[in-house]
Write a protein that binds this DNA or RNA. Structure first.
Lengths: 107, 107
DNA sequence: AACACTATCTTGTTTTACAAAGTAGTTGAC
DNA sequence: GTCAACTACTTTGTAAAACAAGATAGTGTT
């Protein structure tokens, strides 16, 4: 994956990161992203990404009853998703170092 | 600008960063991006961004003769572009901290 | 019943990514 | 002198993505 593809893949990677910390569902992921400092990540943004991640085989999901409210779709990483998350971390490392070198006046 | 808008604006910010270091032109920016570790940033990616940045009033350009080869379109930041670059740096700081907290297992 | 909160999905518009091809000047090799 | 290689910018076309907004639906409170 090239740098520019990387730019688009950050939300994907962040969702993989959240799911890697333990089974969770879409609505909760939005709340967690806010805790981590991401602002304005709305439902219209993340649900389509979750569907794509599942289509690509990186996550799988099961519906479970909620103690209150409608059923929740819980997501977990597949082995392929764990691998993808690992690769995301490396790409992120490389990208953020490049951007930091650039904006922090080095070179 | 929200986090998700931020995700799309990284290439824009990086181009502002490069131009802020001194007058330069598209073809040279691609070479510089490579030096900073960005891979596969092609002409089809950056020229449209440069046109948009100019349309938004963040950069201005002048054509100059090249000592060899076709004329070059040299870009510089406008005051509005300097301000935008400053805001980009703040947004980048905030985003990269969020992503790092997330992938580096904190919280 | 009306409202608020939880939870997911779909739709429709706008924007973006970017490969590919087009145009054009310069340089060096043969 | 022409062929290839490099420099340099633009345009075009397709595919994908972003995301606000709305649809749907269950639960809890007033």
């Amino acid at each position: 994956m090239s740098s520019s593809q990387m730019l688009k893949g950050i939300l994907d990677g962040c969702l993989l990161a959240i799911i890697s910390k333990g089974e969770t569902y879409g609505y909760e992921m939005i709340e967690k992203l806010e805790l981590y400092g991401f602002r304005m990540v709305s439902e219209g943004s993340i649900y389509p990404v979750l569907l794509r991640l599942q289509k690509e085989g990186f996550v799988k999901s099961v519906m479970k009853e909620s103690p209150s409210g409608p059923k929740r779709k819980y997501y977990t990483l597949t082995p392929s998703g764990e691998n993808e998350f690992h690769e995301f971390k490396e790409r992120w490392e490389s990208l953020s170092e490049s951007v930091n070198r650039l904006v922090k006046e080095e070179i």
